[in-house]
Design a protein around this nucleic acid. Structure first.
Lengths: 218, 218
DNA sequence: CCGCGGATCAACCGATCGGTTGATTCGGCC
DNA sequence: GGCCGAATCAACCGATCGGTTGATCCGCGG
């Protein structure tokens, strides 16, 4: 029974060292390589495939500083850009918006864990993902279920776009200019956004959207 | 020449594992114990002191989930709550406001590193801090110098208070009510805040304040 | 075809905000 | 004492926002 061969992808050296050490304690798991962003992960997967040493699981963060992000890399991996059959991807991250989680799941991630998870939980997720099962951290599962249960409170893509621009500090006129629409349209979208978020002004909308992980750092 | 005895304090198991592994590679450094928050760190320092096995350096994060934060713990350590002479504290963290950095430095931290630092930088910081020198990551040093060079752009305590309430979603009247002042006073403070931040509306003020690490997550 | 959601737009009006001017008080420093 | 910054407050006015009402168009699904 050969070990599960794992590629670690995270931009923080401390985290890679921690994962390396943690996985070294798991029976049946071997860290065969590391990368500091999505682009480097793709290159490393291709290299190992060319050497006839394919990877069984990619353990990857979503946020990568200035490098290719984890969701993009996941999509590329699942599309076969780095070889076939594409290995499952397990996301291990700290803080992400619901949209990020959905994007990663839609891009084909087999699992999603948070970095505050204890080693045993990470071990279970690694084994499940490598075996082709879905592995979701309890908090992540709750968020996805909440999203599915309350789709009516989800913002439309356009509303989200408006909200993101709002959070950068643009007024209605600035947002209208940016999107080549009228200020009346912006106001209409904001009315809908406030209703969905249960607020009555722009700063409250931003605060709630950040709290609920609808938008991220501006 | 005995090893530098280090206590690791971080709420993330992955990060503790990474630091443990990283420090294991440093000659002359031994991780003697770990804690998951400031309170546990104080208890562990006391315990080791009572056993006659004092710690030479505390390597600690600032944010600790729901436990005692790193700045509070640093102050308590420097005050001798966990034994004397108090060991130096090296802060290793991801993201903090200028106020957090200043608070930690004022509380007596001997150094401040960011978690994206490569192992060699962390090693240098550990050795410096244990030797009683100050160890600041380049980015952190730049932020402190910038703060000292441009005190005129620093917000007053009251302005900061107003800005924080603004970012929670309160309007001028709400802020006035919260602070038992008039709306006119709130507006005056906002005028000053906008001028200092170089913006002309509230959402832009929030965005800039977050970007500059003046305020943190709401 | 109909209904629905999403996107777009307008007009109107009251509420709130932003900018300006002016003022006072207090504490700290020289 | 004088000066300065911080905090507080007011009045005024134009700008922007929030809420409401009303409308059209498009694509999709039943």
């Amino acid at each position: 029974m050969p070990d599960i061969r794992v590629l670690l992808v995270d931009d923080h050296p401390v985290v890679r060292a921690g994962l390396r050490a943690m996985l070294a304690d798991f029976d049946g798991v071997t860290v065969v390589s590391e990368a500091a962003d999505g682009g480097a992960a793709l290159a490393e997967l291709s290299r190992l495939n060319a050497l006839g040493e394919p990877v069984d699981l990619v353990l990857m963060d979503l946020q990568m500083g200035s490098g290719m992000d984890g969701a993009t890399a996941t999509g590329r991996i699942k599309a076969g850009d780095a070889g076939t059959p594409p290995p499952p991807v397990l996301i291990l991250t700290t803080y992400d918006t619901d949209a990020d989680i959905l994007a990663a799941v839609e891009a084909g991630a087999a699992g999603y864990m948070l970095k505050d998870a204890p080693p045993e939980q990470i071990r279970q997720a690694v084994l499940s993902a490598a075996a082709g099962q879905t592995a979701l951290a309890p908090g992540v599962a709750a968020r996805l279920l909440g999203h599915i249960r309350n789709p009516e409170t989800a913002l439309s893509p356009r509303e989200l776009q408006i909200l993101e621009l709002l959070a950068t500090g643009l007024g209605n006129r600035g947002i209208a200019r940016q999107l080549f629409i009228s200020e009346a349209t912006v106001k209409t979208h904001l009315v809908h956004i406030y209703a969905k978020l249960g607020v009555d002004n722009r700063t409250a909308a931003i605060a709630v959207a950040r709290q609920r992980r609808i938008i991220r750092d501006s």
